[in-house]
Write a protein that binds this DNA or RNA. Sequence first.
DNA 1: ACTGGTAGATAGTAACGCTGAGTACCGGAT
DNA 2: ATCCGGTACTCAGCGTTACTATCTACCAGT
Lengths: 109, 109
Amino acid sequence: MPKQITEMLKGTLEGIVLAILAGRAAYGYEITAWLRDQGFTDIAEGTIYALLVRIEQRGLVDVEKVPSEKGPPRKVYTLNAAGRAYLDDFWGTWSFLAERLEQLRNEGK
Amino acid sequence: MPKQITEMLKGTLEGIVLAILAGRAAYGYEITAWLRDQGFTDIAEGTIYALLVRIEQRGLVDVEKVPSEKGPPRKVYTLNAAGRAYLDDFWGTWSFLAERLEQLRNEGK
DNA sequence: ACTGGTAGATAGTAACGCTGAGTACCGGAT
DNA sequence: ATCCGGTACTCAGCGTTACTATCTACCAGT
């Protein structure tokens, strides 16, 4: 039985990462660690890096390479104007979905 | 730009349909119409029928063919015990995700 | 020299929703 | 009688996304 969270993350994981970047600039490894901390234990590192590449190519974030003291250089991502607009859309879509779901759950008692 | 809702529905649409069936037995065409009524205007008919085939093959629902007065016979789906258990899991996963998202949204103010 | 933590990249796979087309049944309008 | 629209379901092919697994690279401590 495949984990339900895997499919549920499709589309929302992107919003989650953008929401994180809305609060502060961050790099991949850091984001992965933070997500694990929050209970998203199954999220693979590769998933985050691939996602970051995608949102960069869509022009939702700006990137800066910053040397690290303990390892290869970090790619620090910052949400730009297009990213903020996209995040607003995301919250709108999410609200719509969450409201319908909550309604369904209450109907089912 | 592909609609965000399309990706976000992955995983959740299944839960939505199971939640509908938890309230009452229903058939595909009826479910599609209900979803459109609720604002899910972009959900294709084919998507629902494919989803119903999947949950039937996983043994989450029981099926009965019922003749219709105005068209081909309906396939009426009923949630069974396995389906109810799976739906419980779904709500658990959904709650986890919704809580994290709500927290992120509040942090972003 | 080796291990472990830090940091990122990538090829291949599976799941899911969408598109677009098709089949079939029925009633009313032309 | 014929056509059209509403009902009801099916199917092949596609694009997007997350997962798996593996790889490279840098540095500190043992």
